[in-house]
Nucleic acid binder design. Structure first.
Lengths: 187, 187
DNA sequence: ATCTTTTTTTGACAATAATCAAATTATTCG
DNA sequence: CGAATAATTTGATTATTGTCAAAAAAAGAT
């Protein structure tokens, strides 16, 4: 079975009918490197899933790019605030490798949630997962040293160093690229 | 109308029948200062709402208390990871003033979500709100200086200085109490 | 292959906050 | 009230990371 289906089942089991309806609402795109999935000041209308490739979620702060999230193969990702509040996004989402991306439009997902209790439950559990992840990440940012955060990242995503430029990784970890470079050389 | 009801309606509107069923599932307690709502290593079975008073959500890290959240009058709060994963909590929740607290048990809430699509939707939106808040807080921890975070906290909760000891506020802001004391004296 | 551009590393220095220790001020309780 | 305890402030020092600048290495283009 496709990993995407496994990931969906892993969040909450849907009846065959609900699952069919749900899967039909997703679109699939093949996009080149550096393709924008969400542009600045646009409303981030999709919940995405990256089948293959890497996407970077970032924004500008005092003229500098801040990487908020990096999504590698088989992960869900979206611009939380813009998606839910349906307001223009300060986040940009861009592929940094050629990628195959799936996406479901906000309005379709909301309509499905409205009509179908099982899909509503699925989405509730999906958001719960995000919230739990967000808690762990906050704790990590607040209390772990930069080096420890880098090592954990490597343990979770061994391929990240080959696929993502240092400056993005540094920004994602909340440190400067100079600091990350120094952490790396202490080995 | 009670503020609690307004807060519930503000998350998602329930039909009168659903609202009645939902409200019946909540319990109310009057508890003294320093009362534990969740003890360490217990499963945090309730989603709480503090009607009046202050609750502190904290945990131990290297023998030190870390305040993760402070809930003042009319706020929802809970131990996210323990509640959802139904595993023993590393978080403790304790009142720091005599308080009136409402709570709904995990199993009751889940049963209601299962039976009632509107309540499932309510809960989905409630979690969405938590997730958005969590995003904003992460951004604040990562990019704002301690002083700025303190000033924002004061703006949002003017009474917090009178009601919560400095050491808890410092910990909540992710700084030491010495640093907060120095921030305070620069005025 | 070599020139150009981008990315990464290194160095010197500054800033922010943590740590440790002690003094001072508030608060609680008999 | 006044002693005991807890909370807050202050001081001196250290550690971590950021900033700015430049060099080195790597990647991309002609």
């Amino acid at each position: 079975m496709e990993i995407f289906h496994k990931r969906i089942d892993g969040i909450s089991i849907l009846s065959p009918e609900s699952k069919t309806a749900f899967l039909q609402a997703w679109d699939e795109w093949s996009v080149p490197k550096d393709h924008f999935l969400v542009r600045e000041n646009a409303i981030a209308n999709h919940l995405f899933y990256i089948k293959k490739g890497v996407a970077r979620i970032y924004y500008f702060k005092n003229g500098k790019e801040i990487t908020e999230w990096l999504a590698l193969d088989n992960e869900f990702f979206f611009s939380i605030i813009s998606f839910f509040e349906q307001k223009p996004s300060n986040l940009l989402i861009q592929t940094i490798e050629p990628a195959t991306v799936l996406g479901i439009h906000h309005d379709k997902l909301m309509a499905l949630c409205d009509q179908n209790h099982e899909i509503e439950r699925w989405f509730r559990k999906a958001i719960t997962g995000s919230l739990i992840l967000s808690q762990y990440r906050m704790d990590s940012i607040q209390f772990e040293a930069a080096q420890q955060r880098y090592e954990k990242l490597l343990a979770n995503y061994p391929s990240i160093v080959q696929r993502v430029p240092l400056s993005y990784i540094a920004s994602f970890l909340g440190i400067t690229q100079e600091t990350l470079s120094r952490i790396r050389s202490n080995h």
